[in-house]
Every structure is written in structure tokens, then in C-alpha cells.
Amino acid sequence: MSVAGTIVLGAGGHSKVVVDTLIASSVVVVGLTDIDLARQGTLVLNIPVIGTDNEILKYATDGIVLALGIGSVRASTLREKVFQKYTSLGYSFPKIVHPSAILSSVVHIGEGVQIMAGCIVQAGVEIGDNSILNTGAQLDHDCIIGKNVHISPGANLSGGVVVEDGAHVGVGATIIQGVRVGARSTVGAGAVVVKDVPPDTIVFGVPAREVKSQVRSSL
């Protein structure tokens, strides 16, 4: 069966960046879905919101591909749960790479990864499933990014940085070489991280210091 195109799940702010990236990559966008009934029938960059997420189930798993238009904020697991739900049903989430992003030929990119405009990804980088490299993020050589990670706009990771599953790196943050950011932790906007961050921890500041432990949300 031929693929009809891509459906984007979620019609909020992040979906605009996703739709724009898909259009720039000459991908056919069938429409968007959203659980918010107030968004039904509206347009995102002239692409219609065609219904709730149940609309996807009208398509065979090999008749459509999916993209997540749900953004990721700290301590949120919603994006992860939606990804797991539809992959378990057999739907696929191809990687999305904006044409202006610069990627080495020797990187590994998992399923559903989104690499937005202006990103730079150097040799030896690995990016786990369902992670976002948002606008202008830079990853130097041999960084390892886990699953369900969000590297926010303008973040800069030096060589050999490890960001574990579910972590969130804020806008404009800098992480020096060899540092490990633990699973589900948050690095605040503009922080400069010079030492390892334990799992489930929030750090802010220059240099970054622990603020408190983090509690995850299903939203």
C-alpha cells in the first residue's frame, strides 16, 4: 500500500515548527489531529486540523506515517506516551530533518527524531528515539542523546556529552565536554553545566547548581 502522507499529532505551537519542517522537506502533510475540540477545523500553516487522534485509526499502519506536533516541557511524559501508544499499534514516526540543518555523515538518528532549522550535529553523535533537537541547537562530536530528550533552541553541547532518557536541556544552555545529564533531569535556560547532573534533578545558573529534585508529570 502506498503511503498517503504524514499526519501530525497535536496542533499547538510546536506543531507549526514541525509542519514547516515537513513542508520544507517536500513531505505531503495530510492534516493534524488534536484532542482539543476547539481546534477542530482550524488551520496550521494552511494545513487543516482534521479531527481528534482517533482519526489516525482510520488509516492502515502502512497507509500513513506520523509526526509528533506535541512539544516537550520539563518533567512532562505526554510526548513519550503518545509515541509509545502509536508505535505499539504499528504506526511509524520517520525522522524529520530540516534542510538547513547540518549533519555529519556519521551520526545515528533514531525513530521519530526531529532536527529543526539551523541545527549542527557533528561526527559520532547518537540520538535516541523520539528526541527533539530544536532550532539552532549544536551537538559536537560523540554526544549521546537518549530517548525522549528535548534539546531546546540555541543549546550548545560540547564533545562527548551524554544526555540520558527523558531529560530536558533549556534554551541557550551550554554543557561542557564529557558531562553527563541524568535521566529525566532539567537544565534551565541559559545554564552553564560544568559537572554531571544526577537523575531527576533541576539545575539552573552559571555555573549550574542543583535547585531541587524533579517530579514528573503526565501532561
Score class of each variant (00 low, 15 high):
residue 65 V to H: 10
residue 65 V to Q: 15
residue 69 G to E: 03
residue 70 I to Y: 04
residue 70 I to S: 01
residue 71 G to E: 08
residue 72 S to A: 14
residue 73 V to Y: 05
residue 75 A to G: 11
residue 75 A to S: 15
residue 76 S to W: 03
residue 77 T to D: 06
residue 80 E to I: 00
residue 82 V to K: 01
residue 83 F to P: 07
residue 84 Q to C: 12
residue 84 Q to A: 15
residue 85 K to P: 01
residue 85 K to N: 11
residue 86 Y to F: 15
residue 87 T to G: 11
residue 88 S to I: 06
residue 89 L to M: 15
residue 90 G to M: 11
residue 91 Y to R: 09
residue 95 K to G: 09
residue 96 I to W: 00
residue 97 V to M: 02
residue 98 H to T: 09
residue 99 P to M: 13
residue 101 A to H: 09
residue 101 A to S: 14
residue 101 A to D: 09
residue 102 I to G: 10
residue 102 I to V: 15
residue 103 L to T: 14
residue 104 S to K: 01
residue 105 S to R: 14
residue 105 S to P: 00
residue 107 V to K: 07
residue 109 I to H: 01
residue 110 G to K: 02
residue 112 G to L: 06
residue 114 Q to I: 07
residue 115 I to E: 05
residue 115 I to H: 04
residue 115 I to A: 07
residue 117 A to M: 08
residue 118 G to S: 13
residue 118 G to H: 10
residue 119 C to H: 08
residue 119 C to T: 08
residue 121 V to C: 06
residue 122 Q to G: 05
residue 125 V to N: 06
residue 125 V to Q: 01
residue 127 I to E: 04
residue 127 I to L: 10
residue 129 D to A: 12
residue 131 S to Q: 08
residue 131 S to P: 09
residue 132 I to S: 00
residue 136 G to H: 13
residue 138 Q to M: 14
residue 138 Q to E: 10
residue 138 Q to R: 12
residue 140 D to G: 07
residue 140 D to I: 05
residue 142 D to P: 05
residue 144 I to P: 00
residue 145 I to N: 00
residue 145 I to H: 01
residue 147 K to M: 09
residue 150 H to R: 02
residue 152 S to Q: 05
residue 154 G to L: 10
residue 157 L to W: 03
residue 157 L to H: 04
residue 157 L to T: 04
residue 160 G to F: 07
residue 161 V to A: 12
residue 162 V to M: 10
residue 163 V to Y: 00
residue 165 D to R: 06
residue 166 G to T: 05
residue 167 A to D: 06
residue 167 A to Y: 02
residue 169 V to S: 00
residue 174 T to A: 13
residue 177 Q to W: 09
residue 177 Q to I: 08
residue 179 V to F: 08
residue 181 V to A: 04
residue 184 R to C: 13
residue 184 R to I: 01
residue 186 T to E: 13
residue 187 V to P: 02
residue 190 G to C: 11
residue 190 G to I: 05
residue 191 A to G: 12
